[in-house]
Design a protein around this nucleic acid. Structure first.
Lengths: 220, 220
DNA sequence: AAACGAATACCGCGAATGCGGTATTGCCTG
DNA sequence: CAGGCAATACCGCATTCGCGGTATTCGTTT
């Protein structure tokens, strides 16, 4: 995409946000050895990095930790992307729970690595990310895939009958029992009984709960 | 169930489904050189692979093309996963459009590589996948991330206040007004008013509708 | 034929809901 | 400083809901 004429000036500017001073320096030192990369800043807090972006210029790539004092790395990722959309952010953390991964990627991170990654993997990720790729640790990718599969998955385990699903669907659409009865040309009492059964099967006691389960567990 | 063939020897059984005979043989030859891998079968059609799985035993890893005569690779992936859940499937294709990627991963593929990938990347992927990882080409991963970000995109347009979101969240959890009031240490009447306002903003008239919008439009 | 689950229908009652009001207190922003 | 918005609080009433029953019909499975 970027037609280069061999300028030796194409240095990748790279920043780090990592609260553990030791790990921060280790990484910074590691990256400093790589030709074509420069690491001018390494912060212990998101807030500092944000300030630096606004006063000076933004980096090409930002290595971001998640567990940070003050603003966490996910919130930080979103903020950085707001003020500098061109900055690619790579999460580098010990957290490997689905929520963190999901939130970080939703916040706009371009990559997700674990601190257990080999140094070469980290360096490779830098290179990959400026080329437009999204370096994601294979273990993390597995989690991502799992999210996808159960996104379109457990509809078979739905314990509801056809009728019940039909009625649940109408509840999701915001209809009252009376309206559902009219819509399905059934008695009000019938709907009432069905809803009663739906609640029992879903182990909820309110419309809100039932609808939430219906959508969350994707059983429609 | 499927007969377990894994334990005795450390050799990874690997099959290929690829309609282009030349490419198929090239890959098979490539993999055959790798110590610890064995490629007994290479098919041109999913149907043949499926049949082989049922008559013989299933492979540890299956390299699957998408564009195939007869059953396509995505459908095939789903089928193979049904009859042999332990078989990890890696898509190896030229297709890089979002739909294919999405569908393949939803169908249960454990990896997604492009045919333009370097041989080492393919071999690395095999190793990675049996270790529980999900080898995904960085370019593909980028697409995945894009899906995530616009999956959680229109949250900024949430017209709700903090309090309202908080209450809506509790409605999703299936609490009654009274319970919400107790939970937030607020008056019942306050909750009542808030819910009234939430309904107005979301243009719904029932709990079901509100919860559905909350989850569907991802505005919590 | 018997047994069973699903779908249907009906009843009654206490609790919760939806919605129309009004009103006070802060906190911003113009 | 005025006005607006968010959060808070209170009232009343018709409606709806949740849930405890009971009961009939119909298609499967046994």
């Amino acid at each position: 995409m970027i037609a280069r004429t061999g300028e030796p000036e194409e240095v990748m500017e790279l920043w780090i946000v990592e609260d553990d001073a030791l790990y921060r320096r280790t990484i910074a030192a590691l990256l400093h050895e790589i030709p074509g990369m420069r690491c001018d800043h390494a912060f212990g807090r998101c807030e500092d990095a944000l300030k630096a972006i606004e006063t000076e210029s933004a980096p090409d790539v930002l290595l971001m930790d998640i567990g940070l004092p003050g603003m966490n790395g996910i919130e930080g990722t979103a903020r950085v992307r707001q003020v500098s959309p061109s900055t690619r952010i790579i999460i580098l953390t010990v957290h490997e729970d689905n929520d963190k991964i999901f939130d970080a990627l939703c916040a706009g991170a371009s990559g997700y690595l674990l601190k257990s990654s080999a140094p070469e993997e980290i360096v490779g990720a830098m290179r990959e990310v400026v080329r437009g790729g999204a370096p994601i640790n294979a273990q993390i990718a597995r989690r991502l895939l799992a999210m996808f599969t159960d996104l379109a998955g457990p509809r078979a385990v739905s314990p509801l009958t056809h009728r019940e699903r039909e009625i649940l669907k109408l509840m999701v659409d915001g209809l009252t029992k009376k309206q559902i009865a009219a819509h399905l040309i059934l008695s009000y009492h019938t709907i009432d009984t069905h809803i009663k059964n739906i609640y029992a099967k879903l182990e909820v006691h309110t419309r809100g709960g039932a609808v939430a389960r219906a959508l969350h567990d994707h059983l429609l």
